[in-house]
Amino acid sequence: MSRVICAGHVNWDVTLRVDSLPDPDGEATVKSRVGAGGGSAANVASGLTGLDVPAALLGSVGNDSHGRGAVAELASKGVDCRYVMNVDTGPTTVKYIVVDAAGDVFVLGSPGVNESFRADDLPKSALAEADHLHLTSQSPETAALLASRASNSGTTVSFDPGRRIGDRGYADAIRNVDFVFLNDREAATALDEAAGNGDISDALNETTLVLKHGPKGAEVRDGDDQYAHPGYPVDAVDTTGAGDAFASGFIAARLDGATYERALAVANACGALTAAEPGARTQLSWRRLDDLLEAT
């Protein structure tokens, strides 16, 4: 039995490291090009297994070399991939991630099949037996149905909707989750009722928010209660996947019975380790976290 089921995107990432992010009509020099598995749900599942939390993945890939490579990489890390759908209707989604010398990132996505899976692709028995469901960016209808089923079965739910929270209609899903992860930009977008996000804003006010402030740490807002951790000073190399690593640490700590303060410390340490290294998937482990955690 997997303690956590992660549902969402499974991608193939092509990371281009450049000397600088170009202005419009500008040009940059590519220093390196690396291909590897990616996608927020896949990244979180990988991080959880590194932290000794059995994790399964619900997602979809194409019947191609990128899809096979992404699944094989995850399986080698111990992720249960039995619920990753292999579909013939299109290619595995590829994301082109451009990273400059300061670790800043922008992402170019190609069409693919990373949202071809549906809630019915996950047996209800598997969801009922899990301790936790973690949702990432996906079809709003699928997210809402998975969240509702988990809530009805007594399984706790977290959701990291990602950068498209303002235009994907996730309010129904959010109403059935226990906490939502947002970075500063996503929170500003989601809570802006003037921009037409009233439904999402109302839903967020009914749940626990885990706000990621990057190098300034993170906080939890649970009703009138607030908890904060200042984070860890690191020289950022690549912030890709740092938010996913943060989620892995937070979920693992909470499943272990940690307070919000402790969970934030663990989550920030995971995010810091990932930002300090190239690529979206730093190999997380409790041994690697010890030095940073001892500073709190």
Results as ranks from 00 to 15, higher is better:
residue 8 G to C: 10
residue 8 G to L: 04
residue 12 W to P: 01
residue 14 V to A: 07
residue 15 T to K: 04
residue 18 V to R: 02
residue 20 S to E: 08
residue 24 P to A: 08
residue 26 G to W: 00
residue 26 G to C: 04
residue 27 E to L: 00
residue 30 V to H: 13
residue 32 S to T: 12
residue 36 A to S: 13
residue 46 S to Q: 09
residue 47 G to K: 10
residue 50 G to S: 02
residue 50 G to T: 06
residue 52 D to C: 15
residue 56 A to R: 12
residue 64 D to M: 05
residue 65 S to Y: 13
residue 71 V to G: 05
residue 74 L to Q: 08
residue 76 S to A: 15
residue 83 Y to Q: 07
residue 89 T to N: 06
residue 92 T to F: 01
residue 97 I to Q: 02
residue 103 G to R: 06
residue 110 S to W: 12
residue 113 V to M: 05
residue 116 S to C: 03
residue 117 F to I: 04
residue 118 R to V: 06
residue 120 D to L: 09
residue 121 D to T: 02
residue 122 L to G: 05
residue 124 K to F: 13
residue 131 D to P: 10
residue 133 L to H: 00
residue 137 S to Q: 11
residue 144 A to G: 06
residue 150 A to S: 04
residue 153 S to P: 03
residue 154 G to Q: 03
residue 163 R to L: 06
residue 164 R to N: 15
residue 164 R to H: 15
residue 174 I to T: 07
residue 187 A to W: 10
residue 191 L to C: 07
residue 197 N to W: 13
residue 203 A to R: 01
residue 205 N to A: 13
residue 210 V to W: 10
residue 213 H to S: 14
residue 223 G to D: 03
residue 228 A to G: 07
residue 231 G to E: 04
residue 236 A to W: 08
residue 238 D to Y: 00
residue 241 G to N: 14
residue 252 A to F: 03
residue 252 A to V: 02
residue 252 A to S: 10
residue 269 A to K: 05
residue 269 A to C: 08
residue 269 A to I: 13
residue 278 P to I: 11
residue 281 R to W: 10
residue 281 R to T: 10
residue 292 L to P: 02
residue 293 L to F: 04
